[in-house]
Design a protein around this nucleic acid. Structure first.
Lengths: 333, 333
DNA sequence: TTGTAGGCGTTATCAT
DNA sequence: ATGATAACGCCTACAA
């Protein structure tokens, strides 16, 4: 490996001079600069990142900790983050932790000294406590982490508003027996979406029926199962609202297998508006979230706190909007 | 920030001892080990990654350079890579370069000293030359990079075989006028898939019609455009084979907009079998590629070369298989 | 079993 | 305008 010393020796200058040339510092004669550049290029020199960040105390890398890497939701997030980071010359160091305290701890440890800050998506409510240990130690942005954590910059989706808007829409279309496939109990987004569902029912004067709420785990399979269980209910719901699109998609296939027509026999709606949603058959009505923008804004937040140093924490919310397609019968007539 | 010195001072031992405790080295008395561990935990100490890798000459990170981060193909690749890397205690440093020589150069530079090896996906044939500069300098696995590069470990998809199998299937279903929406001209996978298409036509004694080959850029939009253009042809093709699923999906929507039935009026097939494919209407026939496995195997290859040091380069191929759904009319009767 | 000290590759500080 | 040299935080001979 060719180091700064090799270049210095070859050029007959000191390492300090090479360093200055490399960093475009002032006070290097044009001739020296020229000669050193040429030799560096010829030798294929480029500085050693770790060594550099040891002294500069900056890595130009952002840590990204996600609960999972599966599915379009996460890939869109990463895309948003990477895009924004790269525009500012930052790399991203990705890690997925399955939400357990220990795994999060391990990930945080192993990123120490390798990143300038972190974006952590940890919707598990338990895991929040782990994070409190970090408070203020170094720049962190929490993604969908529950806004209680005023100690951090956070960005969350308007879960409650989105969910209740969708339920209101279903009510307006004449549904009274609206079931919900909820997400994991300990998940922040899931809890908020469920809360939105309930409050919309309340507003509409519909008594909530506990039998109409089944929990899934955000996977397609769990949506499929929940929908099947709901078909066994009597009376049967006339609409199913899933806490995310994957589960809604699972529900759609369960309904098809059961020989039911959507939306004629039963309406279906999801949440997130992953790219796949509009290709469903019928196209899936859902609550649109600009997922890659979620990643973008988290990154912007993090970069701003890296560059501006201390400043009051910010709590951002990302707006949602209804996307009515045919799986719920289309717009209100 | 708490360093090894702080822990040493607090524990009344030397930094060497703390280091030994941390790395589970032998020859530390149980009492000392215990005391140091406790203090380290209390102080929230964890070693500084950059400093550590400077001396150990290892980062436990893998660089991943992709041409893009958009769409299910890339997200599946990342998932496969991260999963395998994490199992061995490695992190991944992600970067997307838009395939230009300069961008690739920049990415490589900035990763120096931050990663132990790299997985580079750079299907652009031009970019291959840049890579030759790297030869042997440090561990690299080329993903879909054209097997000519015997200087690297490579893993490629069986593009030629997959494409020709699909075309043969279409021929068996009675199609003679089979059009192809090809990928970018300078793209390796695209070129191989086109070659497979041509050789299958040849085998079947069908004269290739240049008007039946239109180039897209792997995006849905370009597939849409190409399909529209093909509808204007006279005689019109009876089947369209797209070089990837995204373009096939774009073609499907163009056909629907034109009021054509798939597969009755025109058959459609894609390549990759992204998760979305089976949800299309009608479900898309395609050449299945286990995309996340592609990432997995690339990572395995890289890790093995990190651990075993010098060994002969390996050239791997990932098998494909036909997935016949209804967009091409189903299996041969 | 533990401590001392040198060095990893780079930048920053002070000379000159 | 350039050079010597001390950090940065850690690991590892070697010494004790």
């Amino acid at each position: 490996m060719v180091t700064i010393k090799d270049v210095a020796r070859e050029a007959g200058v000191s390492v300090a001079t090479v360093s200055r040339v490399w960093n475009d510092a002032a006070f290097v004669s044009p001739e020296t600069r020229q000669r050193v550049s040429e030799i560096a290029a010829r030798l294929g020199y480029s500085p050693h990142g770790a060594a550099r960040s040891l002294i500069t105390r900056t890595t130009h890398a952002l840590g990204v900790l996600l609960p999972d890497l599966y599915g379009e939701f996460f890939s869109e997030i990463i895309r948003g983050i990477d895009h924004t980071a790269q525009a500012d010359g930052y790399h991203i160091l990705v890690s997925s932790s399955h939400d357990s305290k220990d795994e999060i701890d391990a990930a945080l440890r192993s990123m120490r000294g390798r990143v300038d800050g972190m974006i952590i998506m940890s919707p598990d409510l338990e895991a929040q406590r782990t994070l409190h240990a970090l408070q203020g130690s170094f720049p962190v942005v929490l993604l969908n982490g529950g806004a209680e954590s005023k100690a951090f910059d956070t960005i969350t989706i308007e879960n409650h508003e989105g969910a209740s808007a969708m339920v209101r829409h279903l009510v307006q279309r004449g549904h009274r027996r609206i079931a919900m496939i909820a997400g994991p109990e300990r998940n922040y987004d899931a809890a908020e979406r469920l809360r939105g569902y309930r409050s919309a029912l309340g507003e509409s004067g519909i008594a909530p029926d506990p039998a109409f709420v089944l929990a899934g785990d955000f996977s397609e399979l769990s949506g499929h199962r929940a929908a099947r269980a709901m078909l066994a209910l009597d009376p049967r719901p006339t609409a199913i609202f899933a806490a995310n699109d994957s589960m809604a998609i699972g529900a759609l296939s369960a309904l098809r297998e059961a020989g039911l027509r959507v939306p004629e026999d039963i309406a279906v709606a999801g949440f997130d508006d992953i790219p796949m949603a509009r290709y469903m058959n019928p196209p899936l009505s859902t609550v649109h979230v600009d997922i890659s923008k979620l990643g973008e804004r988290a990154t912007t937040l993090l970069l701003s706190s890296l560059q501006n140093g201390e400043r009051p924490r910010k709590q951002l919310q990302l707006a949602t909007n209804l996307v009515i397609r045919s799986s719920c019968g289309g717009p209100v007539s």
